[in-house]
Amino acid sequence: MMRFLAGRLTGLFITLSVSSFVVFGALYLAPGSPESVLLGNSTPTPERRAAIREQYGLDDPFMARYLHWLGDILHGDLGTSFVGNQPVSGRIGAVFDTTLYLVGVTAVLIAAIGLGLGLLAALRPGRIDALVSTVTAVVAGVPAFVAASVGISVFAVRLDWFPAYGAGGEGFLGRLHGMVLPALSLALIASALLARVTRAAVRAELDKEYTQTARARGIPGRLIVVRHVLPNAAPPIVTVGGLLVAALFAGTVVVENAFGLPGMGSLLIGSVNQKDFPTVQAVTLLMVTAFVLANLVVDITQQLLDPRLRQGGTA
């Protein structure tokens, strides 16, 4: 287990180093000088240009600049946004919770819908299974932005059940009300994929001989499923479910913009349009970090769930 952890942490370190390098270096790939990207659309005075070069240390060697930037980030200084000259960390702090809330609600929906439909299909072969399989095959092809637009037109405009735009009302329930459509749109594909994986994993365990033996011994079907089949089917389900939830951090970009939710995704696209490069860098890096960390958690959980992987020690 220790060797596995050490290996994964090294991998994490390398991945985060490379992605931070890419996020930082991207600025220098841009056509034109870096300060013109940093200055955005404005035409600067020579003094402003010099101030920018000074502020970002553009006259230092590239690696020195990168390490300086990285050091600042590790100390919690994410740079200064061009919008109102505020610290980027403050702008992110103001919208961070909306994204976390959205990811949380979506994860609950994915678990409930995905596991529910998957179990239903696995335990009820025949017509129900065929129906669930067809539905999940179609839903797996419904992108979040299509679901969002159609959802707004049906449930917000026609039926007026939910707000079409913005973060919803006050308090926990008010916010939840505003999150229903965005979270559902974001959850569709992931729920369908999780349902298929759950169905396959549970079905595979049901077909094994120990299940038949247990059934032959007269153990009630429900008990077999809960006590034996589910724990054995859990590892692939948890892995896929975790990876799908990890991917949500990037998925929020689309949904938040479709619904005008003030979260990290809206901040990111807004910053791209305003050419606010420091904010783009910080948000991208945070989202990648969240994604990579969530993947690590999934890996570790998988090890804890499946003793066979632990004994193998080949990770």
Binding site: V18, S19, L27, V253, V272, V280, V288
Partner: peptide, 21 residues
């Protein structure tokens, strides 16, 4: 492995931010 761990949408958003939409 590293490229795989970068969400595709984010890579594209970064590229668009650097170059142009």
């Amino acid at each position: 492995d590293i490229v795989f761990s970068l969400p595709a949408i984010l890579v594209a958003v970064l590229a668009v931010a650097v170059f142009r939409p």
